[in-house]
Amino acid sequence: MSLSTHNLSVGYHDTAIVKQVDLTIPEGKIIALLGPNGCGKSTLLKAMARILSPMDGQVHWQGQNLHGIASKKLAQQLALLPQTQPIPEGIKVKDLVAYGRSPYTGFWGRISKEDHDIITQVMQETGITELAEQLVSELSGGQRQRVWLAMTLAQDTPYLLLDEPTTYMDLSHQVELMHLLRKLNLQGKTIITVLHDINQAARYCDHLIVMKKGKIVTQGSPDSVLTQRLLKEVFSLSAQIHQDPIAKTPMCVVE
């Protein structure tokens, strides 16, 4: 009940990309937003993170209109990791991660002991402790992605919104990230993530939301959602569904 959309239409420059979507995010789960390019999954995520204002309809957080809630208070509830980030000049890794504590610090941004502990912890969890003194601009794409993730985690919110978090990461870091998301989920976080890899979503997520042309086509557990017909309809893909031999989750194999 915490995060929901009501007849939500949202987009850019008067063109609606997400069209009249009603959605209630199931709390305490890892949710994947899936769909072909341009289907509106990132736009929907941004609307739920109040980056974009609705053209029509509303996004509710605990029954209240998202845009009516004090921005600092909301920043303690929802954190977004955007798809692309600018490369900040002259900022050290530890400083960037510390920026994640901004919703809790005073006007000058002074870091408390508690803030410092959280920063240390998220840097360990994301495996960037040894990068602390380096400049963000000098890191590789995959390292930078993990630093930004750490910054988002430092925000310490019950809801995490991630826009293609595995982009730029090599395979082992992708797997590490998905395991980290599972761990965070067990600690009680609700995680909503846009993913491209259907098998990754099926293996690590509890709930899949599939979109096409700005509408939600179907949603539910990976077992109930992933069918041959759906892949044909939504992705125009001829594929078979098999069982993952290790995780026992559905797995799509392209014909």
Binding site: A49, S71, L74, Q76, L80, S102, P103, M151, L161
Partner: peptide, 8 residues
């Protein structure tokens, strides 16, 4: 995007 998400 990040700035808004951080409450700015």
């Amino acid at each position: 995007d990040s700035a808004i998400s951080l409450g700015i």
